[in-house]
Design a protein around this nucleic acid. Structure first.
Lengths: 111, 111
DNA sequence: CTAATATATAACAACACACTTATATAATCA
DNA sequence: TGATTATATAAGTGTGTTGTTATATATTAG
């Protein structure tokens, strides 16, 4: 019984850490953008209208939390969602508003 | 278009506030307990093994965020989940571990 | 090789948050 | 009524977090 509770508490601990990552407006917006397509840092900076270091630091937290992955493509580093595991995050992201239109019309960096 | 984005940003703002509430181990545990049944404050204090003011303050935040409701029953105030709206919260809570067994064996307050 | 561009890291200031202790309010019980 | 129990609120402390500015690293272009 105690083992069951400990396992449950570990699971809650892990979920709460993930939810804390998503419980920030800037990071949740980044996640909503990445839902549509992978993006490089300069894309995100342009779309969010905040500083490049701010975006970088949020991306690092998302990466450390296992929510995004990165791939360097030459000069640029592309970030993408990594939530195939964690079904509850997948569902949550599905219910985020879509920025598809905005990305189509405004994406202009690193083409 | 700007209106669409503003609406999306408001939605993200609201979701991030809700997720921030859930992104705390103590509060997420409270929510997991309430998933099983309504509970009074003394129940939660006993199950969480933390101080009564700490639980009270977390419950207030959950209430202010619209995630729980309260009902006084004589000396006790019972809290319960209020997430019928907010489908993404409902789904998320569904994937929290169950404390049903623990509640059955350990609930002893306010009977 | 040098300059320019993209990204990351470091240091710091401002603020927010969780938890504690002490106290207040509200309801019941004797 | 006074004592007890349940809950809320207030104030304070320590810690964590966000965003900024300055700087470092890495890649490409000329």
């Amino acid at each position: 019984m105690a083992a069951v509770v400990n396992q449950a508490m570990e699971q809650i601990q892990e979920m709460s850490e993930t939810l804390k990552l998503l419980g920030d407006k800037t990071r949740l917006t980044i996640v909503a953008l990445l839902k549509e397509q992978e993006l490089c840092v300069c894309d995100i900076v342009a779309l969010l209208a905040t500083s490049q270091p701010n975006v970088s630091q949020h991306l690092r937290k998302l990466r450390d939390g296992g929510l995004v992955g990165e791939t360097r493509k030459g000069q640029w580093i592309y970030y993408s969602l990594k939530v195939e595991d964690k079904p509850y995050v997948r569902d949550l992201i599905a219910s985020l508003p879509s920025f598809a239109e905005r990305l189509k019309s405004e994406k202009q960096c690193c083409d």
